[in-house]
Design a protein around this nucleic acid. Sequence first.
DNA 1: ATGGTCGCTAAGCGA
Length: 267
Amino acid sequence: MTDRLTIATWNINSVRLRLPIVERFLKTYQPGVLCLQETKCPDGNFPFAPLRKAGYQNIEISGQKGYHGVATISKRPLTETERRKFCDNSDCRHIATDVPFCGRHLRIHNFYVPAGGDELDPHINDKFKHKLDFLDEMEDWLGATTFPCMVVGDLNIAPYEQDVWSTKQLSRVVSHTPLERERLEDVRKAGPFVDAMRCFVPMEEKLYTWWSYRAKDWEAANKGRRLDHVWVTPPLAPKVVNVEVVREARGWDCPSDHAPVLATLEG
DNA sequence: ATGGTCGCTAAGCGA
């Protein structure tokens, strides 16, 4: 008996404002699990009822007022939940849940890594220092992962040349600096984890998950970046049978600036 | 080189 599970990740930039497109996405793509980032929603105001009504009975959240916030919603039971704080502050940037897959538990880490501000010098820019410290802590904590595990979410770094519209023009823009690209590779290798998206799209091809709100016509300009990621522990890699960016969702009414990413496991 | 647009939550911050 083969098991099949689709996991989605999406920086939603306010789950309450965008509930209509979350419902549309769930109805259209029917993922087993959806990991949301930037819910911007205190726990008491989270829209549990409409998501349960959409078929997602199992919901684990870590939210705060105004900023950040993550949530994992699932058709399958979520048997274990962990909310980790990073960098000794109370930002809600991580939630891990266990979901049954293939007769055992799959741990799904849902991350929202700090964006890091604009200034490139971490001595001047506290937000960039926070981002680098967060990555250091991720590396230590996720290192030597031995059980079936996925890392998904908005990691706010586009690591490879073809993950941005112009690697030259973005080399001094936070999200694609050589330092961040190297640090993210260090985190990935510490798992170690396999970059599942790049297993399905060759390194030579452009691949984006985010398009700025500031472009007049995001689709025509197509100045995107791959800020959202799906990583798996090596034994899971051959079980990933599909990964895709749902680019159409960037064009829906009242969109997030991020598109969802779908990854399907079969085993 | 600069400014461009969003979503909080009620002027400015974060992205």
